[in-house]
């Protein structure tokens, strides 16, 4: 093999990958100010948590982890629906998707 390829995938490698994606989502959540991208970062973080659940389900041979992922997907769908509803209400009030424009209490 020309490039690095481990012989076998260890569980910690999958968990480290999920943690990397979570941290990318968290950093994006903090440094972006476009609320559309902030909501996408939240979805990314929820997904990485799902991957952690599935990995532990595989490590411990317990299907309860995959059930937790099922409920997590339902909650994430409801969350994105409500989040986008709030986004539309915000855009109607402010005509902007920039979170720095939310300063109605300061004026």
């Amino acid at each position: 093999m020309a490039f690095f390829l481990p012989q076998q995938i260890e569980p910690w490698l999958v968990l480290a990958f999920a943690a990397t994606i979570f941290m990318i989502g968290l950093i994006g959540l903090m440094i972006r100010r476009n609320i559309l991208i902030i909501l996408m970062c939240v979805e990314l973080m929820l997904n990485s948590v799902n991957l952690t659940f599935v990995t532990f389900s595989s490590i411990h041979e317990d299907l309860g982890g995959q059930m937790a992922v099922f409920f997590n997907i339902v909650v994430a769908a409801a969350e994105s629906g409500v989040g986008l509803g709030l986004l539309i209400a915000m855009f109607r009030t402010l005509r902007s998707v920039d979170t720095d424009d939310i300063r109605l209490l300061r004026q």
């Binding site: 569980p11 910690w12 968990l15 480290a16 943690a19 389900s57 490590i59 411990h60 041979e61 317990d62 299907l63 309860g64």
Partner: peptide
């Protein structure tokens, strides 16, 4: 994650 040693699987869904 790297240093933790997971015990034997206990869930029963082999």
């Amino acid at each position: 994650f790297r240093t933790t040693v997971w015990g034997p699987p206990t869930g029963g869904h082999t």
